[in-house]
């Protein structure tokens, strides 16, 4: 009996040690899980901070660009525009003296167009302009200009009353619209561009379609222009999708990202 008691104690000690070791592992596993959760959360926070920083940098770049554009626009309007107006007045006086002078008539027409173009360009560059006119109106004016200066028919259809995006968003969407239309003019060989604008959620959906030769997206995947369009739209929480194939024309859709979209970033 005397010998069995220590053996029993040995058995109990072993069982207790084993149980303690098992509890230790359980505790360690729990610690690892908690530590891992914190680590993942911390990484997510760091990523969010990096994103916020990137956003701030982009915002600063955007503001700097807008500032420059505003200055250039003002300079065009106030300086070049004034000089052209002076030339226009001089031509008018000269024409009053020689009403039948065809050459002077032609020069005055050219000066009129130049004044109008400079004014239009000055307005386009002036981002404060969005306080005076809506994006839909700007697109319509731009479409009319393109129709005027090229041989392409441009049809604009505005459905309902699209909600006006913030001025920054308007500027970027307008530039994207210009780039898309410019691409169509330069590369598609289209004779018709159709633009549709309709209200969607907090913004507007723009569809720009041409009836040109289209292209194979796989072959121009590395093209910086298309990526640039998408990237610029993402900056203002918009998506840009391009549907095209050889011989089928090209259709771009610009629309606001929903909050469920993985690319959507809050706070923009």
């Amino acid at each position: 009996m005397d010998q069995e008691l220590p053996l029993n104690d040995v058995l109990i000690t072993v069982v207790v040690m084993s149980a303690v070791a098992l509890l230790f592992v359980a505790g360690l596993a729990a610690l690892l899980v908690v530590h891992h959760q914190r680590r993942v959360r911390h990484r997510a926070e760091l990523a969010e901070l990096a994103l916020a920083h990137q956003r701030e940098v982009m915002q600063a770049e955007r503001e700097a660009t807008q500032h420059t554009l505003r200055d250039v626009g003002r300079e065009l309007h106030d300086n070049v525009g004034q000089l052209l107006s002076v030339a226009q007045m001089g031509l008018n006086i000269a024409l009053a003296e020689e009403p039948g002078n065809e050459r002077l008539n032609g020069v005055r027409d050219a000066a009129d167009r130049a004044v109008e173009e400079v004014r239009r360009l000055g307005h386009t560059l002036n981002v404060d302009l969005w306080r005076e006119r809506s994006l839909a109106e700007a697109i319509q004016v731009e479409a009319e200009r393109i129709a005027r200066v090229s041989r392409i028919t441009v049809a604009v259809e505005v459905q309902g009353e699209p909600t006006e995006p913030p001025p920054d968003t308007c500027t970027i969407l307008f530039r994207v619209f210009q780039e898309v239309v410019n691409n169509a003019l330069k590369h598609s060989g289209a004779d018709r561009i159709t633009i549709q604008l309709l209200p969607v959620g907090d913004g507007l959906k723009a569809t720009i379609a041409d009836n040109g030769r289209g292209f194979d997206q796989a072959q121009v995947k590395a093209n910086a222009g298309l990526g640039n369009i998408r990237q610029r739209c993402l900056l203002v929480n918009y998506s840009a999708h391009c549907w095209t194939s050889p011989g089928e024309g090209c259709t771009w859709t610009l629309e606001p990202l929903t909050i469920h979209d993985p690319l959507h970033r809050p706070g923009r």
Binding site: S18, A21, L28
Partner: peptide, 10 residues
Amino acid sequence: TAYFIGIIPV
């Protein structure tokens, strides 16, 4: 880990 740490004393 759990099994082998437990069987060492056993």
